[in-house]
Design a binder for these strands. Structure first.
Length: 275
DNA sequence: AGCCTATGCGAAC
DNA sequence: TTCGCCTAGGCTG
């Protein structure tokens, strides 16, 4: 589910559906029951995304934010009141349900879901790197970390203290699009190259917020243009290298590579992105 | 019915 | 670097 575009879409939708509304809260699973009872009957003041973190704000509480991090498998879905948001109705895994008279939201499998103070929220913002999806992002802050690091850019981009909201798909795709080897050290990245990466991330991620898909393939490389069948994977769009290990590179036709870097699958084209 | 995977993170080794 | 945690849904048999 979640790279930064998912969180930002949720913040946007949450704000339009729940802000200014009185909310009924429950935790059918029980793990968030005490907090849900504090929230029940309060007014929602809207939601905000910081990288992969989501903060939903409520009125009249000492800890006025629900801090949600979906982790790898968490899902948060919104819909009109009465709609079925998941195929399963298993309430034993339903961490949180929020309802207004017109809308419902359900949270399953989050890595974190807790009530936090304004100071806690501020700390998350302060500890996060610039988020390409936030208007207040200062990319130079990311640059200062990258230019003095010997860690590979493939690891740096995934580090939420460097660039917040970038996950495994955006990392793989932006490095391919900019023809940068994921193994290049941060110190080997020029400011000009960093700026290209940042600008491309902003475009890719804003598109993903707008469409709900990660589509990174340029028109001239689309499978139709290259005489191949279109494919659309579970991440919802068309990509150059993510999860395409062993398949042909959409640009050069050579085999896409994969290796585990820091516990995550890293995908790249050794020909298009030479070391 | 069981198996497998995943867009993440942090504690433990 | 590995492991555990959180779980839906697709796939296999």
């Amino acid at each position: 589910m979640p790279e930064g575009h998912v969180t930002h879409r949720l913040a946007r939708d949450f704000t339009s559906d729940f802000a200014g509304r009185v909310v009924r809260a429950s935790s059918p699973q029980g793990r968030f029951a005490a907090e849900a009872s504090l929230l029940d009957g309060r007014e929602c003041l809207g939601a905000e995304a910081v990288g992969k973190h989501l903060f939903v704000r409520f009125a009249d509480l000492p800890e006025p934010y629900i801090h949600v991090h979906l982790g790898l498998i968490g899902k948060l879905r919104l819909g009109p009141a009465g709609s079925r948001l998941f195929e399963t109705d298993d309430e034993s895994t339903l961490r949180l349900r929020l309802r207004t008279s017109t809308h419902v939201a359900e949270l399953r499998g989050p890595q974190w879901c807790r009530l936090v103070s304004a100071a806690d929220r501020d700390r998350v913002v302060a500890e996060s790197g610039p988020d390409p999806l936030r208007a207040d992002a200062d990319p130079e802050r990311a640059w200062r970390r990258i230019e003095r690091s010997r860690r590979p850019v493939g690891a740096l981009l995934m580090d939420q203290r460097v660039t917040a909201g970038v996950g495994n798909i955006f990392r793989a795709e932006v490095l391919f699009r900019q023809r940068i080897s994921p193994f290049r050290e941060g110190v080997g990245v020029t400011h000009r190259v960093f700026t290209r990466v940042w600008t491309d991330l902003v475009g890719l991620m804003e598109y993903a917020v707008a469409t709900g898909r990660i589509d990174s393939v340029l028109p001239e490389h689309e499978p139709e243009a290259m005489g191949r069948a279109p494919r659309q994977d579970r991440h919802g769009g068309e990509v150059y290298v993510y999860r395409r290990a062993g398949q042909e590179c959409l640009v050069c036709g050579r085999e896409v590579s994969a290796v585990v870097m820091q516990g995550r699958n890293l995908y790249w084209c050794g020909h298009c992105q030479p070391r």
